[in-house]
């Protein structure tokens, strides 16, 4: 019984291709900038107040790893892609319930648990496509401008981002089974993920308040630590994965009990 998985996977292709294209354009932009501004980065680092760097976890801007961590991973990957996953997650159930597709789906010999799991499993498409496509683009991009990236660190910044992105999708999924209107589910999910990211970022500025960020998923995915310091927090990733599984269980339990 993989009909739903096949259909849902197919629906994720277009978005994934578009996002890879967006990251290709962004990478081209930043890689073309880097040789020209590398020298001035020290000045740049002095010119901006410290909290800006704390907020975004920026370090070592004059190295290609630090630069790419700051420009591509700390914003576009950790925030925009997270929002995309939350958006997709929020649409998984609510959109089918709203336009009555779920009535037809559930008239088949398929359990509600299976519907949820197959829809979640279809997230393999953006997860794999982006985490294979984008590192290749970044790696090749660095070579083109005569720099080189540590391939292990690059692979890790992607691998360890997967649980983080899945948690964001899980937040969307829970809202998708709770909220009936797909637009409200999506808006709530992406606002929530954005606010969580913001809380994490802002709380880093003052060490006294840094603990507040421990409840946000982005605290457990540190792109700069991975790329610049080659520190791989597997335990944090495992924690995120566990949270993702809990969110799936919650969503499934709610969905099997509710009227549609």
């Amino acid at each position: 019984m993989t009909a739903i998985l096949r259909l849902e996977s197919r629906k994720r292709v277009r978005g994934s291709v578009v996002l890879i294209a967006v990251f290709a354009v962004l990478s081209a932009l930043y890689f073309s900038m880097f040789p020209g501004i590398q020298e001035e980065m020290d000045v740049f680092e002095d010119a901006f107040p410290e909290y800006m760097f704390d907020m975004f976890g920026i370090e070592q801007l004059h190295t290609i790893e630090g630069f790419i961590a700051a420009e591509i991973y700390s914003f576009f990957w950790s925030l925009l892609l997270a929002i995309y996953f939350a958006y997709v997650g929020a649409g998984l159930i609510a959109s089918d319930v709203q336009d009555r597709k779920m009535d037809l789906t559930l008239s088949n010999p398929v359990s509600r648990e299976s519907v949820v799991l197959q829809k979640v499993a279809a997230l393999w498409v953006p997860v794999v496509a982006l985490n294979v496509g984008v590192p290749i683009i970044v790696y090749v991009g660095a070579l083109v401008i005569g720099e080189s990236f540590n391939p292990v660190a690059l692979a890790m910044v992607h691998l360890l981002s997967i649980p983080y992105l899945l948690v964001c999708a899980g937040i969307g999924l829970v809202l998708s089974v709770v909220v009936d209107h797909v637009r409200r589910a999506r808006a709530t999910a992406l606002t929530l993920v954005f606010v969580l990211w913001l809380v994490d970022s802002v709380s880093r500025v003052d060490p006294d308040y840094e603990w507040i960020g421990t409840l946000t998923p982005s605290r457990y995915y540190e792109e700069t630590d991975i790329l610049v310091h080659e520190e791989y927090a597997f335990l944090d990733a495992g924690l995120l994965l566990a949270v993702f599984l809990v969110l799936i269980v919650v969503a499934t339990v709610v969905f099997t009990r509710r009227d549609i």
Binding site: K11, P109, V110
Partner: peptide
Amino acid sequence: LTEVKADIGYLPDSLGFE
């Protein structure tokens, strides 16, 4: 109920196709 749905056909009043 899920099991017997293999033997049920359903035409809803409002058709939600992909």
